[in-house]
């Protein structure tokens, strides 16, 4: 399922809303979440999971082709932790 499938499914379940409007809302949801993570903030969706930003230390990496050392700068990465309800549902508990 991709974003357009999601929009289509939701429009089908909410006939009072135009598909275009649902698309705008779905985009806004993920834009809000991206923005929150950009500010280093945490997102918690009960029953689904939580997102947070973790920092990876700067390190000395290697170019796997040439073997040359390269400095890899400190990086921020998004981290998702699945919520209890969804974890159990995915595992059919």
């Amino acid at each position: 399922m991709n974003k357009s499938d999601l929009v289509e499914f939701i429009s089908g379940n909410l006939p009072s809303l135009a598909a275009r409007d649902v698309e705008v809302i779905v985009n806004t949801i993920f834009d809000c979440m991206t923005e929150q993570l950009q500010h280093g903030g945490r997102i918690e969706i009960r029953g689904f999971g939580s997102f947070e930003v973790r920092t990876r230390r700067a390190r000395l990496g290697r170019n796997p082709k040439t073997g040359a050392s390269v400095d890899v700068a400190e990086r921020r990465v998004p981290f998702f932790k699945v919520g209890k309800e969804l974890r159990e549902r995915v595992n059919h508990e």
Binding site: M1, N2, K3, L6, F9, I10, I25, V26, I29, F30, I45, G47, F48, E85, L86, R89, V90, H92
Partner: peptide
């Protein structure tokens, strides 16, 4: 939106945003 995503993942289907 979140309910649909949960139902989809429960079925083992992936979601690409």
């Amino acid at each position: 939106v979140f309910d649909t995503m949960k139902d989809t993942l429960e079925k083992g289907e992936k979601i690409k945003i």
